[in-house]
């Protein structure tokens, strides 16, 4: 997946933004879908799709604890994704600067 596609996923919805803020502020959070949803004032059903997007990106990972499936931040992968996006944005900025000099 390209950095542009990653960025698109992260900016996809307000819920995804809320999830990113929650896990970045609380990198040690390990909880079920329903409990994570409760922590951002939503229901499990309403965040399921956004969680799937973040799991597919690798920012969140799942693990089975007893009878429950839990979500947690993959710190290493999260750093990789953020670095890739930052690089992508820097490149865009560079392109914009070149374009500005043209006009």
């Amino acid at each position: 997946m390209s950095a542009a596609q990653m960025l698109e996923t992260l900016l996809a919805s307000e819920v995804t933004g809320d999830l990113l803020v929650l896990f970045h502020r609380n990198p040690g959070l390990i909880d079920t879908l329903d409990s994570v949803a409760r922590r951002i004032g939503r229901t499990g059903n309403s965040i399921e799709e956004d969680v799937r997007g973040l799991v597919n990106l690798g920012i969140l990972k799942t693990r089975r604890i007893g009878r429950s499936e839990v979500l947690l931040l993959d710190r290493a992968r999260d750093r990789e994704v953020l670095d890739a996006i930052a690089k992508h944005l820097r490149n865009l900025e560079g392109v914009e600067k070149i374009d500005n000099t043209k006009f």
Partner: peptide, 16 residues
Amino acid sequence: VCTSPNLLLESEGDSL
């Protein structure tokens, strides 16, 4: 580590 108490109880060994 921030979690729900039931998960700590459900976890077998130290998986959590």
